[in-house]
Amino acid sequence: MSKINLYYVTDPLCSFCWAFEPTLRKFRYEYADYIDHDLTVMGGMIENWETYNGDGANGIQTAVDVAEHWREVGDFTRMPIDGRVWLDEPIASSYPSSQVYQIIRRDFPDKADLFLRKLRERVMLHNQDISKSSVLAILLEDLGFDSRAVLSAAESFEGRSLLSSDLSLASALSATGFPTVVFVNEANQGVKIVGAQPYEGLVAALKQILRVETLKPMPVPSLDIVMKTTPLLMSREIEVLYNLSETEVEGFVHLTMGHDSVETGQILGQTYYKAV
């Protein structure tokens, strides 16, 4: 079977990447057999506001503009985003959290996806400034890491160099927006998907790069297995994973997990489920 390398260029502060998570997660589960190498690449969205050139397509020139954009993305996709952090205390840069991600990916690769997910939960759902060492330290400790050691490595030349390598790779992949997914086949030919495209777009791109008419998806793991690696899921994520309607999710979760194994609540008007 021919396989591809998947490069996912993203940033912890990318709202469309947060909205894209349900789609990409389902794709990675169903087509894992076709993926030889799967790498998440930090793209460096905002080094600082002094050098940021803005995002004209989304009407963003200043930090304050981000708040309205984030709320619009959250409302449209039902992946809730608070956004008040940009009004209360604008985030200075996405580089500090990206550098911490580099250290986690290098030293604890099996925890890298969870760390990136928790970064996004902190900033999107809980309005926390993930450019601050104090916020990152608490998150690291909550996940069982030695926060002092990780932050020291991330803030050193080592952490900056690792991020610089990712930025160079993102540039080589011609990733000019987030999210960007690039498939590269065994002949080193590539197909690029830009933006939070629908699931069908990813499948079509995989068929194109493999030059096949049909693909055989694998079953998505059961919800209890999924929640071992992603303990908190929004209702929208479960809908996408299991092809459910919004009204079917609650019954599905309790049937699959049991009432005592999952906590249910509301965040910004949307339902979440958390493994306990």
Rank of each mutant, 00 (worst) to 15 (best):
A112Y: 09
E72D: 07
L125D: 03
S98I: 02
E186S: 13
T62N: 03
F76L: 13
K3Y: 11
I81H: 01
E239L: 10
L119Q: 13
N243M: 06
D146G: 04
T264A: 04
V181R: 01
G159R: 15
F20T: 11
I91G: 00
L140Y: 07
E89S: 10
V203C: 01
K111C: 09
L169T: 14
V9F: 10
P221R: 10
S152L: 14
A32P: 00
S168M: 02
W18E: 15
D224V: 04
R106C: 03
D224S: 10
L143Q: 15
D65I: 07
L13Q: 05
V100R: 01
A149G: 06
T230Q: 05
T247C: 05
D82Q: 05
F183W: 13
R122G: 02
M1C: 07
I225F: 11
L13C: 03
Y34T: 02
S156A: 09
D166Y: 00
R106L: 03
Y272P: 03
V191S: 00
V203E: 00
V194H: 14
R78A: 05
D38C: 06
V182A: 12
L116P: 11
P217M: 11
E89T: 08
L244V: 04
D36K: 09
V9P: 15
K192E: 04
P217E: 04
C14G: 11
D88R: 03
D38L: 07
L232P: 13
Q102K: 14
A170H: 04
M42H: 12
Y34H: 05
A172F: 11
E155V: 06
E121P: 10
L210I: 04
G59K: 02
V150H: 02
L255M: 06
A153I: 05
M79S: 09
T247S: 02
T40A: 12
Y199E: 01
V226M: 13
S245A: 09
K118Q: 10
N185C: 14
V85D: 03
G177S: 12
L162D: 11
V240F: 04
S235K: 00
S97H: 06
I138T: 10
F145T: 13
L210P: 00
A92V: 07
I238G: 08
S2P: 11
S152T: 15
P219C: 03
D36L: 08
Q197T: 14
V182F: 15
I209D: 00
V100I: 14
T271F: 00
T247G: 00
L268R: 00
W86C: 03
S15F: 02
A19W: 06
K118C: 11
W70M: 10
L125S: 01
I103W: 15
D36F: 07
K132T: 09
L136C: 06
K26N: 10
P198H: 06
M124C: 13
I225P: 05
R117V: 05
M227E: 08
I4M: 08
F115H: 03
L87H: 12
W86L: 01
R148H: 09
Y31C: 01
A112N: 10
